[in-house]
Amino acid sequence: MSGIFSARAWDKVWTYRSTFALGLFNTVRTAFFGILLALVLGIIFGLMATSGKKPLKFISRVYVEIIQNTPVLLQCCFLYYALAFSNHSIGIILTGIISLGVYTGAYMAEVIRAGIEAIPVGQFEAASSQGFNYIEKMYYIILPQSIKIILPPMVNQVVNLIKNTSCLYIIGGADLISLTYSFVTGENTGGAYAPAYIVSGLLFFVICFPLTKFASTWEAYLKKMDQRIQFAQHTTIEEGVAANE
């Protein structure tokens, strides 16, 4: 036990720092492109779910339910091995980007759907009655109001995606968790469990913490703004009453 926190173990991690850097790089690039894909899918399927057109709603529903009700590990394996056995292997990183993007996209779609559905129907009608077409209506009127509802849960999904890059381990991954694991179990490098996992955890924390912090600060700010508007409303009404008395 004493050896776990020994200077030698830390020294070993430092010596193999490039392994951790590579893992971090792979995790970050998988996450980055995964997030882009998730956003695109989330917007498309989220809008489809709120389009009011039955076939589009149905397709969106099927996507969301299948993805949300099967494990992401299974989706990842399925994509990787199905392609590998049909001789179309696309590599671990690309598999990660696609499977995590598709997985998180389903959650993004739900976040966006909920954000749009939270806007009163009168807003859609007012925009239509002025002659805004669908895209103009969404862009100028609806989404600017939805964004404050959408953003905090969306950031949480982004953080989940970053952490979920560890799923790549099951297909022989190149991500931070996988490389950390091979490092601590490796023949030449093995043994430095605690320092390796601490370093790996810290790297995740350094990326994810600012994001969650941003989400919670943003949420608190919105609450404060809503209170301020309610307060303003309250005082105007009181002033109105006072003026009438």
Partner: peptide, 14 residues
């Protein structure tokens, strides 16, 4: 609608 009509609603909808 854009060229001809506007509407005022019961719930204002500003």
């Amino acid at each position: 609608i854009r060229d001809n009509i506007s509407m005022v609603f019961q719930q204002f909808n500003l």
